[in-house]
Design a protein around this nucleic acid. Structure first.
Lengths: 247, 247
DNA sequence: CGCGAGTTTGATCACCATCAAAGCTTGTGG
DNA sequence: CCACAAGCTTTGATGGTGATCAAACTCGCG
């Protein structure tokens, strides 16, 4: 199931559709949004702290992350994105970026001009609600990460993150059964979880030893979903995937 | 400067005005929003995980927090609110609450029906943008907390939080010069920062010993703003307080 | 085949959690 | 107005999770 052949906003629409019943013309309007497509190597900044972009970014293929740095140079990933996400939709209303956005794996991304977004929202107010909701779900994920990184130990945190990624990937049709691709280094996982990369390595070994995950190259296999869920103290409520559509 | 005599949405409007130039009728519409006012003792839940509220909450006086629990009962505060904040504006589009909202100090709060919010937003689309922006700023604060709690040590984290609170309170006209009221226990600060309360106590002693803060009962005094800022590695950009209004 | 990025391992140490108990404050009722 | 109780703050001691440093190993890739 590669996304190569699809239009760059297909997955976004797919995802939004699962929680919202579009009218035909609303869907048309989304599909007709002018999008400038680009491919990126891994590890490239897309937007940086302090920038004032005039467009926002749509992940079509690959993984990206949002990160922040302390003045000492320590890095925290504050979000991970899967295809279908719009990582910097916030830039529509917050002029100057408080975060940096970067590709984690090779990516194909689409850029949508803010002006075009505003036009669509103006003409179809229900789309405003859908996009607003998208940013609210990201905020909800931030909150869960705060709980995760603040109150669970590294082993559990990592289990939790695997759960989240599996669910989010399956929600956009990526990941087969109990398997998904995760083209991300241990250093990046460590930065997301808030541990050192050395410790992250040991945590991953422990998770493998306990049979919670298996890895084959960039692939992650979850042999026992219930066990992983329990280890990660995972409840998918915060992803808001199964709610009735917003009015 | 007590807020007792003011209408319950005054501070909210004040805050929004500082980043957005309302038209007269827009401001009128906000001022005419029906609000049901209530007073609360400290430590009361306002909304709980799993609820499906039909209204949202506006803090008029006092402090509130958003928290989440692990299944082991560990608590993480994921947000603190000052007067003028709308802590659960998200409930307008995310039906079931992924968080609990509680008063930290005695509070007076106002409740606005979702339906009324939707009416106002429908009639004045620019207000939609303002409210949307409000939720985006809260998300930005979440991200900074992720960085703070994940990459700084407790001493620095706490300094950072003091900086944030001073700025946010001054933005709504609370706090005189270098002083502000902070009716919150060390246990709650610990839950926000992600440390034990014992360690929080020692951190506060260290901050006092180093002259970064003084405390008199519930009052916090910041004798040397620059030093506190440096200790907390604080940059107010993420609060988005000084931007040109959203179009 | 060799380079560089990423992973793995070992050893030491610091920050902070945890447990336990004693002082302190604040509000409430007698 | 005082006394008591409950919640909050403070202190001490011990131990664990995870940071840090250093170096070897693996693997994909040009």
């Amino acid at each position: 199931m590669t996304a190569g052949s699809l239009s760059p906003n297909t997955l976004m629409i797919l995802k939004l559709e699962s929680i919202f019943a579009f009218a035909d013309e609303e869907k048309q309007a989304l599909q007709n949004l002018p999008i400038q497509v680009t491919t990126l190597k891994a590890g490239r900044d897309i937007v940086r702290v302090g920038d004032r972009p005039s467009q926002c970014c749509l992940i079509h293929e690959g993984f990206s992350c949002v990160y922040k740095l302390t003045s000492e140079g320590k890095r925290q990933l504050v979000a991970l994105h899967v295809p279908g996400d719009i990582p910097d939709l916030q830039s529509l209303h917050l002029k100057t970026m408080d975060i940096s956005l970067a590709s984690i794996s090779p990516c194909t991304v689409g850029f949508i001009q803010h002006d075009d977004m505003r036009c669509v929202c103006e003409r179809y107010p229900r789309l405003t609600a859908v996009f607003w909701r998208e940013t609210l779900v990201h905020a909800s994920i931030h909150r869960e990460w705060l709980l995760n990184n603040g109150q669970r130990e590294a082993y559990s945190r990592m289990a939790h993150l695997f759960c989240e990624l599996l669910i989010r990937l399956k929600a956009v049709g990526l990941g087969e059964g109990d398997t998904f691709d995760l083209p991300i280094t241990q250093v990046e996982l460590a930065d997301a979880i808030g541990t050192s990369s050395v410790h992250m390595n040991r945590v991953l070994q422990a998770l493998r030893a306990d049979g919670l995950i298996q890895t084959k190259g960039k692939q992650v296999i979850v042999p026992d979903w219930e066990k992983l869920k329990e280890a990660g103290d995972f409840d998918p409520l915060y992803l808001h995937l199964e709610e009735a559509g917003a009015a």
